[in-house]
Simulated scan of single mutants.
Amino acid sequence: MSSSKEQPSEQPSLLPSLPDDIIIDILSRVRWCDYRTLSLVSKHFRSLIASHALYARRSFLGCTERRLYVALSNGVTTYHNPYILCLKANGGNHRLVLIPWPTNVPHVGSFANVGSKIYAFDTLNRYHHLPIPSVDCRFQTVHLVSCMNATMDVSVAGVIDGKIYVTGYTKTQWDTAAKMVMAVFDAETQIWETATETIIGRPYGCVVMAGKMYRRDARNSFVYDPKESKWETDKRLNMFKWEGGCVVDDVLYYYDIRGGKVLRAYDPRKSSWVVVKGLERLVAEGRFSESYYTGSCGGKLVLFFSKDRRIKGIRCAQISLERRHHGRSEIWGKIDWCDDVLFRSDDLFVTKTLDVIL
């Protein structure tokens, strides 16, 4: 009889030896937010999750998801730190999770996304001979696109039909000789179109509704029709100094912190402003907040607001919107959820949101 102890038999692998195409087909039906956990299973899983084949399969099956990327700043520096709005595991609260950002992509400036790609335009783009980086959020890879065809300090960027409209100063903005110009980048052909001058001053807001771009400067609101290549003033939109707004179903929404702290909506088809109803509890909860920002993701409105001065952090509410007609047009909001999404010792506020397809 052997004196050596009998060695326990090796446990069978919990992962079946399936062909890669079958594993990819299974993974493509899993929520994107679970991929980080699944990547810890093995090196092989990690390589499959980072493969182009997986996302091609997700697209073919219609399993793509929309995720809200959020840029935060502390007001002291101009740096934007990238976060993503995620649902905590096991049915927990929503959280803003800091994500890795490639070192060769600027943390300052303006951002715009087309599909799964985020384009980063440096605020100080005087060195216009440098290529523009784009981040593919599916793989966290960076691709450099052609240099901008105009020397400008970028202010804002908006997207219409796959084209990015970038507006900025030809010189420093405090220079009296500075002019505003607009350059257009076609994300499909990767080509910059001819830059043109604009009639607007420094833009404080930029949204796209029904194929037109709406912007405002310190005094006026403007609308740009790319089909006619023409800017016009919009007096009705100019009734309120909208800023930090978003668009859901071709309607502009912004939180009016000066005019009674209400969520206002502007419908360009009717040239009319209304106050969104049904949000009295949310308005009361945020009455001591000092900063607000609205974003849209998957047809829902997302409202970020700071907590009071004593309690640092950011709260967020997702709002479903409904049109009602009782003699006149009404828009009602329903709060789907409202959570503390970030706790920090310093003051942070939202500067940009991007609805990214993954």
Score class of each variant (00 low, 15 high):
residue 253 Y to G: 00
residue 232 E to I: 02
residue 272 S to Y: 13
residue 122 D to N: 10
residue 71 A to Y: 12
residue 93 N to Y: 14
residue 312 K to G: 11
residue 341 V to C: 14
residue 38 L to C: 03
residue 25 D to E: 07
residue 193 E to R: 03
residue 302 V to S: 06
residue 82 P to V: 12
residue 265 A to I: 03
residue 228 E to P: 00
residue 13 S to Y: 11
residue 325 H to D: 09
residue 219 R to E: 11
residue 326 H to P: 02
residue 313 G to K: 05
residue 259 G to W: 11
residue 64 T to D: 11
residue 310 R to S: 10
residue 96 L to S: 09
residue 123 T to S: 09
residue 348 L to Q: 08
residue 136 D to Q: 05
residue 48 L to T: 03
residue 101 W to F: 01
residue 129 H to V: 12
residue 70 V to L: 05
residue 286 G to C: 08
residue 309 R to L: 15
residue 336 D to A: 04
residue 28 S to R: 10
residue 185 F to M: 00
residue 201 G to M: 08
residue 206 C to A: 13
residue 67 R to K: 13
residue 200 I to Q: 13
residue 304 F to H: 09
residue 158 G to N: 12
residue 257 I to D: 14
residue 103 T to W: 12
residue 50 A to S: 03
residue 179 K to A: 15
residue 111 F to W: 09
residue 306 S to D: 06
residue 180 M to Q: 15
residue 50 A to W: 05
residue 101 W to M: 02
residue 347 D to V: 11
residue 209 M to K: 02
residue 143 H to R: 15
residue 34 D to P: 09
residue 306 S to W: 06
residue 337 W to G: 10
residue 172 T to R: 14
residue 122 D to V: 06
residue 182 M to W: 10
residue 94 H to N: 12
residue 336 D to L: 06
residue 278 G to T: 00
residue 270 K to T: 06
residue 130 L to Y: 10
residue 237 L to W: 01
residue 321 L to V: 00
residue 210 A to Y: 06
residue 310 R to G: 09
residue 118 I to G: 02
residue 145 V to H: 13
residue 83 Y to D: 07
residue 133 P to C: 10
residue 350 V to C: 12
residue 118 I to A: 00
residue 76 V to I: 09
residue 87 L to Q: 13
residue 103 T to K: 14
residue 277 K to S: 14
residue 226 P to M: 06
residue 305 F to P: 07
residue 276 V to D: 03
residue 34 D to F: 11
residue 16 P to K: 14
residue 160 I to F: 06
residue 59 S to I: 14
residue 216 R to E: 10
residue 160 I to H: 07
residue 348 L to V: 05
residue 278 G to M: 00
residue 309 R to D: 15
residue 214 Y to D: 02
residue 222 F to R: 07
residue 58 R to W: 13
residue 214 Y to E: 01
residue 135 V to E: 05
residue 348 L to I: 05
residue 93 N to K: 15
residue 348 L to S: 09
